[in-house]
């Protein structure tokens, strides 16, 4: 079982250059993989390729050995769930109604929610500590609460793989810590394969494995202690970086 990119290239329509070049990696169940790299490196594009929303110009994206584009949308959504960086969340929807959308891939066209679905929705919302504001409308929630609702929606899909696009962006410290905690536990306790685009390299240091991309290519891959090294980061981010080494390295940019 794995979600695998194999020699993937991607070029946006009308562009003259590939934004993703010859990228191969794999996400196994029960692992938390961090995708890092400077702005414009192609991280979000890689996530869109992995979720089947974009189709590679060359190469293949496979889920359990079968191309993600050979799955129907519904079938794919039962395996892979995505928490986007920015999502349009209709303000007038209640938190619970939004999480209920996560059941769509499991329900037939005409079917109503079953008691089983209600249980799954509640469990997902409790998991992300969103159950207590289930009746609130999305417009009334803070950024951190909204992110928990979107994560609960992804969990309601009961996926095997969870893709997170900068899940901690714009959140305060507590919500950042909570979110990273959810990601880790979902991988280690629930056995999900988690792939997260992360901007904060000290968050990334918590992952099991890191993939560092620059200009559409993978430049390093491995344990955080191996990837988060000062010379490599200084080169890739084009700024001087200090790293306190260890099992969980601490990355500090030097302010010029």
């Amino acid at each position: 079982m794995s979600l695998q990119l194999d020699r993937v290239h991607y070029r946006y329509e009308g562009a003259t250059q590939d934004v993703v070049q010859d990228v191969s990696f794999m996400v196994e169940p029960a692992t938390w993989v961090g995708l890092i790299g400077p702005n414009g490196a192609g991280k979000s594009t890689l996530l869109a390729l992995a979720s089947g929303v974009l189709k590679p110009s060359r190469g293949s994206v496979t889920l359990n050995g079968k191309s993600v584009h050979r799955y129907g949308r519904r079938a794919l959504a039962r395996h892979v769930a995505v928490v986007p960086q920015r999502s349009d969340l209709p303000d007038a929807f209640t938190a619970r109604a939004l999480v209920a959308m996560g059941r769509a891939p499991h329900l037939g066209f005409f079917a109503s929610e079953r008691p089983e679905d209600e249980r799954i929705i509640e469990a997902a919302m409790r998991r992300t500590d969103a159950w207590r504001f289930r009746g609130e409308t999305m417009g009334a929630l803070s950024g951190g609460e909204r992110q928990r609702v979107v994560l609960a929606r992804a969990l309601a899909q009961q996926p095997t793989w969870l893709l997170l696009d900068e899940p901690t962006a714009h959140l305060d410290l507590r919500y950042q810590a909570d979110l990273l905690g959810y990601a880790r536990r979902l991988a280690h306790e629930d056995g999900l394969g988690v792939l997260a685009v992360l901007h904060d390299l000290n968050h990334a240091a918590r992952c099991d494995r890191l993939i560092l991309v620059d200009e559409g290519r993978i430049v390093a891959e491995g344990a955080p202690a191996d990837v988060l090294r000062a010379p490599l980061l200084s080169h890739v981010y084009r700024t001087r970086v200090d790293v306190q080494e260890g099992e969980r390295p601490l990355v500090l940019p030097r302010v010029p």
Binding site: G52, P84, F93, A97, P105
Partner: peptide
């Protein structure tokens, strides 16, 4: 009437709707 869930999904944007299983 049957497409009620699909209409709801369209409200979160086309990319998210796809990721939630709708053949947009």
């Amino acid at each position: 009437l049957a497409a009620r869930r699909a209409f709801d999904l369209m409200l979160v944007g086309e990319a998210s709707a796809k990721q939630l299983g709708l053949p947009v």
